[in-house]
Computed example of a mutant assay.
Amino acid sequence: MKRYQCRAYPTGEWQSLARSFGCAQMVLNDAIVVRQTSRLAYLNYFGSYWETGGEGA
């Protein structure tokens, strides 16, 4: 069985559209990382409070 490898490159308007979607994906990934780290920090801060039934650490 013979395999062929083909790659298509966007031109003109498609190239700017592809760049915009790439930037949007990077922003989305950064937002997800910020959300996850802030959620973990929140849980670490209040985790001991919830585990002890409100008595604190």
Rank of each mutant, 00 (worst) to 15 (best):
K2I: 10
R3M: 06
Y4R: 13
Q5S: 12
Q5G: 07
Q5D: 05
C6N: 02
R7W: 04
A8W: 06
A8P: 01
Y9A: 04
P10L: 10
P10Q: 06
T11Q: 15
T11A: 14
G12M: 05
G12F: 06
G12W: 06
E13W: 02
E13A: 07
W14D: 10
W14L: 15
Q15G: 04
Q15F: 09
S16V: 15
S16Q: 13
L17Q: 14
A18C: 12
R19Y: 09
R19H: 11
S20D: 13
F21W: 07
F21N: 11
F21A: 05
F21D: 04
G22N: 12
C23I: 06
C23F: 07
A24T: 10
A24K: 05
A24S: 14
Q25E: 13
Q25C: 09
M26E: 07
M26K: 13
L28H: 08
L28W: 09
N29W: 07
N29M: 09
N29G: 07
N29Y: 03
D30C: 11
D30S: 14
D30G: 13
D30L: 14
D30Q: 11
A31V: 11
I32C: 10
V33Q: 04
R35N: 11
R35G: 12
R35Q: 12
R35S: 13
R35K: 09
Q36P: 02
Q36A: 14
Q36K: 09
T37G: 01
S38Q: 15
S38L: 13
R39S: 14
R39C: 13
R39D: 15
A41Q: 13
Y42K: 02
Y42F: 08
L43K: 03
L43Y: 07
L43D: 12
Y45P: 01
Y45Q: 04
Y45S: 05
F46R: 01
F46T: 00
F46A: 03
F46I: 04
G47S: 01
G47E: 03
G47Q: 03
W50K: 01
W50I: 04
W50N: 01
W50S: 03
E51Y: 00
G54K: 00
G54F: 01
E55W: 00
G56A: 02
G56P: 01
G56S: 02
A57I: 05
A57Q: 04
